[in-house]
Nucleic acid binder design. Structure first.
Length: 337
DNA sequence: AAGGAGATCAACCGCCGTATT
DNA sequence: AAATACGGCGGTTGATCTCCT
């Protein structure tokens, strides 16, 4: 029944910090053979480690495509924005920062960004300005329920988006299997992504040059998935009597605002969309507006420098997951709710 | 210079979804 | 269909580093 026993049950395996010799062995083995099955790798590579430990060391430290060192302002902004959308889904966030590991992002969030937001008076969990208990009571329970509805609203959109992302990744994987990479790709063979989307995408689509048709098809599939998934969610919840499409556009706007604010020259649009969002949430969301404006300010402070590949990647993903209706609505007049 | 406190980050742990038998 | 392993993820820990007194 089942598979053979797990390596972690073997005794005498080493734990703790890796030595340079161990790193060298692991690196040499993977460069020559690829990681293959992690469980059997330590034995083949002559390491007294469990496969899990090897995988972790590789994905978080030894992988050649890892960018180390300080996070840039833009990376910080991306993390904050994505965390507002995704919460503690570090691997999902890491797909938008391809050269950073989820572990690194998680550490950076916990040691830097969380504290910084807290200092700014922003709850790092909800990304809403902290309101003391009295003010909250004075604001009334209605505001709280609207806030809850707002969060749920966002969560539904995100759930649909993640579903599309997963589908995209699966398709990419299938295509990769159908057409294996050339043997000359020495390091692509050892590419061991912790996350699915960006790596498989980059491997397959080669920075957008190799197979634009496939990319386009995948994007269309993703968009369709979001549309259908979120459309169902909207119909199910009858958002304020609006049509599913309109509601979807509104929900998409929020995510669009969060992500699209990275676009060079998008300051104005961002401000408009922030306005649209605050209109959507009326009243109690003055605080939200303030928060998103603060993010805008952070973005603006770095926007003077030219756009990077990083931001353009985020934009690409935004476009990928923002259906046409939402994108159109977001760039036109604010949606009335 | 010494040592205590806080910050940082690599690595581990345990859980979960998926694949395999 | 059930049992089990695998791979991946997020939370947490602990060793090390840095700063302050």
């Amino acid at each position: 029944m089942g598979r053979s026993p797990c390596c972690e049950k073997e005794a005498g395996l080493k734990k703790g910090p890796w030595t340079p010799e161990e790193d060298q062995k692991l690196l040499a083995y993977i460069e020559q053979h690829g990681h293959g099955c992690w469980r059997s790798l330590p034995t083949k590579a002559g390491l007294r480690r469990c496969g899990k430990s090897c995988r972790l060391r590789w994905t978080n430290y030894l992988r050649p495509d890892i960018k180390r060192g300080k996070f840039t302002l833009q990376e910080e902004q991306t993390i904050i924005q994505l965390h507002a959308l995704l919460g503690n889904r570090w691997s999902a966030i890491a797909t938008h920062l391809p050269k950073r590991t989820d572990n690194e992002i998680k550490n950076y969030w916990n040691t830097h960004l969380k504290k910084r937001l807290a200092k700014m008076g922003i709850d790092p969990v909800t990304h809403k300005p902290r309101v003391d208990a009295d003010a909250d009571v004075a604001a009334g329970g209605g505001a709280r329920s609207r806030a809850a509805a707002h969060l749920s609203h966002t969560a539904q959109w995100e759930s649909a988006r993640l579903e599309a992302e997963a589908r995209l990744a699966r398709e990419a994987k299938l295509r990769a299997l159908a057409s294996p990479p050339p043997a000359t790709a020495a390091l692509s063979g050892v590419d061991s992504p912790t996350s699915t989307l960006s790596f498989s995408e980059s491997a397959l689509f080669g920075a957008g040059s190799a197979a634009p048709d496939i990319h386009g098809a995948a994007r269309a599939a993703a968009v369709q998935a979001v549309q259908s998934s979120y459309g169902e969610a909207c119909q199910e919840h009858h958002f304020g009597g609006a049509t599913a499409e309109t509601s979807f556009a509104g929900a998409g706007t929020l995510a669009g605002v969060l992500l699209d604010c990275s676009v060079t020259g998008a300051d104005q649009r961002f401000a408009e969309r922030t306005e649209a969002c605050s209109g959507e949430l009326q009243g109690e969301d003055d605080d939200d507006k303030g928060y998103w404006n603060s993010i805008l300010n952070m973005v603006n402070s770095s926007m003077s420098s030219s756009s990077s590949s990083l931001t353009s990647e985020v934009v690409t993903d935004t476009e990928m997951f923002l259906p046409a209706t939402a994108a159109a609505a977001a760039s036109a007049t604010p949606v009335e709710f």
